[in-house]
Design a protein around this nucleic acid. Sequence first.
RNA 1: GGGCGCUUAGCUCAGCGGUAGAGCACUUCGUUUACACCGAAGGGGUCAUAGGUUCGAAUCCUAUAGCGCCCACCA
Length: 727
Amino acid sequence: MELPTQYNAKEVEDKIYRLWEKSGFFNPDNLPKRHKKPFSMVLPPPNVTGVLHMGSTLMLAIEDTIIRYQRMRGKKTLWIPGTDHASIATETKFLKDKKISRGDYADNRGEFIKLVNEFALQNQGLILKQMRAMGASLDWSRLKYTLDENHNNAVQEAFIKMHEKGIIEMGRGLYTIINWDVKGQTVVNDDEIEYEAGKAKLYTFHYDKNFPISISTTRPETKFGDSAVAVNPKDERYKNLIGKIFDAEFLGKKLIIKIIGDPSVDKNFGTGALGVTPAHSKIDAEMAIRHNLPSHQVINEYGRMTESAGPLVAGKKTAEAREITVNYLREKNLLEKEEIIDQNIPMAQRSGGIIEPIPKRHQFFVKVNKKIPGRNKTLKELMIASVKSGKIKILPKRFEKIYFNWVENLRDWSISRQIWYGHRLPVWAPDPAPSGDELPYVISKTKPAGKEYENYVQLSDTLDTWFSSGLWPFSTLGWPEKTKDLKMYFPNDVLETAYDILFFWVARMILMSQFLLGEIPFKTVYLHGLVRDEQNRKISKSLGNNINPIDMIDQYGADAVRMAMIVGTSVGNDSRVSMEKFKAYRNFATKIWNASRFVLMNLDGYKSGKKPILTKEDKKILKDLNKLSAEATKLMDNFKLYSAAEKVYHYFWHTFCDKIIEENKKRLNSQNEKEKQSAQYLLLKILIINLKLLHPFMPFITEEIYQQLPLKNKKECIMIEEWPTKN
RNA sequence: GGGCGCUUAGCUCAGCGGUAGAGCACUUCGUUUACACCGAAGGGGUCAUAGGUUCGAAUCCUAUAGCGCCCACCA
């Protein structure tokens, strides 16, 4: 048989992938009988508008390796593919791309959604194709999308169930301070904020000449909304003022300021007195509730001053208002001090716009500290117990600590978004909404029937995209229906993802699963790190160090790319990629190819199935090989993929090729048929075992060679061969 | 401010209580009919520093220094 000396990955990969797809074995329903015990994972669904990047390449390499290993171990393996509509990300991208705003479609939301959806889906085929190019053995017959009818239904159902139990609640209006993304025109959750290090001026001043205390602030423009000055109750300087109420005139605006004592005030910061602005600070709002203070909103959703900010600044942008305020204070000799301090500026992760804390009505929240009726536990407690009990194992273990730390400090999850593209809340309310904080509303998937609901419309808001993603491990299996898949494949065995979405996603899945199914969503969480370039920089477009994985696959082959991603990458740690690495494993592929070619070339007269006489030396070699298999198995079971890959690599190249093949060349050329047969048997045996051990890592080349081997009991493909634990 | 990591051969990283490891790079040699995307031989580390525990420490403990990440967001 004539094979080229260099392995042509490009030619082989398409052909082999088609062979696998045709075999049907990506779908566990089609696997042979020996595959009984289920093993399931979901693919973290990439954003539908995305393209494959190095991070997703790493993810696919790890997950496919795990799945292929488990499949060979005889598991009934299910790996579900899907894509995410990624509401806020996609809508932001769409608006930017088309240079329009939601306002342009104010009267035609339907049309807007249609356009975003088209925009979102136009690239879906590309990312799916790229996953195939990596060799991912995903069950395409179960392909899901987060806007599928079933998933949509799951989202509505989840909302309804959580609302029923009082775990989802509407916020309290004026005293509910949310993070408002002025640029993106939506509420965002605490963890969607990024802080930019910066400097700010801290101003110390009196509201007016008659006011007895001076206060410090970095945001003078918010002071129009003040309703109190808080001091520490133990602060001797102010003790006797507590409880008094003063009228103050602040740039033409009349303020009624009560002096309150609150232990949260730091005596040593600034003047030790804090102007309380309930409408524009979460901490102040909490204080206002404790002390029963009124709240006045002075900044609106567009980052401009409201009417209640008074005549001199109403309608101005916050920055202008600040300038006017400071100038005024300076002129009137009310400004005591200006100092520069370090301050981090909150920015919206998606839009990059400034975050403005403002009050907002009719917002829904997941209450994490509320006891769930009938279970007497809070979501927080359930989330912690899932991991503390050992039911969920997080790898590497240090992330368990990080997880606990995060969950313990978790605050209520704000889930309403003013985005349009996404899952709309199943909430109906009168249109127009009555003024005031109270809103009569009905929870329903469709418009509630009845005369009294005639003027009800569905709320405009959609749900935080992570609310939807949190359902993924079971919605993909058919939940809320009681499907066969759900019964068989839930909880998932492994959830593999990047550590930077531990909170966003992993924690939310645990929350949702515990609440809705009373069960953990998965048993093991395998976290991988970031992929960096050879200079340890993050890979990003702006740095220009972007490596396109598809180019790498074209150039070096998918197997080499997969190995380069896996070897040298331990669980939870960042890894680096470089051309050298790709090259090294491309060379390894060639080595595998040539060694196999050599074995095949020397099989003249070989009788398969007949076991020849083996020397002591041969037996020792096979025994060592057993040891290797056992070691690799143990490493794989412990998710030490990098280590297993390296071991097999090393054995194949430096033991099998450099020693065993070399030492057997003489025997292969021997005139003694028996000796020749023994050598042929030995080499072929070692080769096939190595191919199996390598298959999860380098599926294409091992399959291509397997297809050409003369074997007894040959399976349809190496993909469903038995993983060698002993030979 | 709180937390978590990392520091081992030139580079990237394993090892995590029993005489220092891998890949890549480097040096020398080799046109052996599988492979030069190759082979053979070889050089190279007081495992960040200082203490401690131990018969024995890269490995456990405590400090120190440098680097990195996450969380909080003091008005």
